[in-house]
Amino acid sequence: MNGITLSLRVLHRGEKHLARELQLVADRHRTDHEVHHVATDLARWSEEHALRLAQAAHDQGLDLDDSSGTSSGVLAELRRKAAEAVGHRPEPGLLLLRDLRALHLDATENSLHWEMLAQVAQATRNDALLTLASECHPQTLRQIRWTNTMIRNLSPQILASL
């Protein structure tokens, strides 16, 4: 395994993980419409990144599982019902802050891996991988900015109300 295949494998796993976590947060906080809709959109970005990484890995002779990792309809329905039940209790704000913090850290980790992939692509003069990183990394940075903005806006109100 060389540095490129290692980077592709780690980043693919990270993007799939982030897509799943974003969708879980969207389902868990369904009653908060902004969180639900934005997290769903951001999950699609990570799913697309994982698909593009799987194709790039295939071009490098590496076979990565390119399934989206979406959850079954039964589990999604259970999460929706749980979100409705929890939505009327005082703890959802703390849960949301915890979820946003975890998403922020996951997206930041992916951002670092995108940077490393771009650097190894540049060092090996792999224009296809450099283009991939240049197109996907800005969306990961946007995911980080969203989580940071949400934490900054929500934490004073949530924490002051405890």
Rank of each mutant, 00 (worst) to 15 (best):
Leu105Gln: 15
Ser134Cys: 10
Ala133Glu: 02
Ile151Gly: 08
Glu91Tyr: 05
Leu8Met: 07
Trp146Cys: 00
Glu77His: 10
Asp59Pro: 04
Thr5Ser: 10
Gln55Phe: 07
Val74Tyr: 07
Ala107Tyr: 06
Thr124Glu: 15
Gly87Thr: 04
Arg52Asn: 07
Ala50Met: 01
Ala43Tyr: 02
Glu84Ile: 15
Arg44Gln: 11
Thr124Phe: 12
Arg101Met: 07
Arg145Asn: 09
Gln23Pro: 00
Thr140His: 06
Ser68Ala: 10
Leu117Ala: 03
Gln139Thr: 09
Leu11Phe: 07
Arg142Trp: 15
His113Ser: 14
Gly14Arg: 10
Arg44Cys: 02
Ala50Trp: 02
Ala128Cys: 00
Val120Met: 13
His49Ile: 00
Gly93Arg: 02
Lys81Val: 10
Thr131Val: 05
His113Asn: 08
Trp45Met: 05
His29Phe: 12
Leu95Pro: 00
Asp66Ala: 09
Ala26Trp: 07
Asp99Thr: 06
His29Ile: 08
Arg20Ala: 15
His113Pro: 06
Gly87Ser: 01
Leu94Trp: 02
His49Pro: 00
Leu96Glu: 12
His33Gln: 15
Thr70Glu: 14
Gly69Cys: 03
His88Phe: 00
Val25Lys: 07
Ala102Tyr: 15
Pro138Ala: 02
Glu91Val: 08
Gln60Phe: 12
Gln157Pro: 01
Arg44Tyr: 11
Leu105Ile: 07
Val35Trp: 02
Asp106Asn: 13
Arg145Ser: 14
Ser71Ile: 13
Ala133Ser: 11
Ala54Pro: 00
Val38Asn: 05
Leu132Gln: 10
Asp63Cys: 01
His36Trp: 02
Asp66Gln: 04
Leu22Cys: 09
Met1Gln: 09
Leu42Arg: 12
Glu109Cys: 11
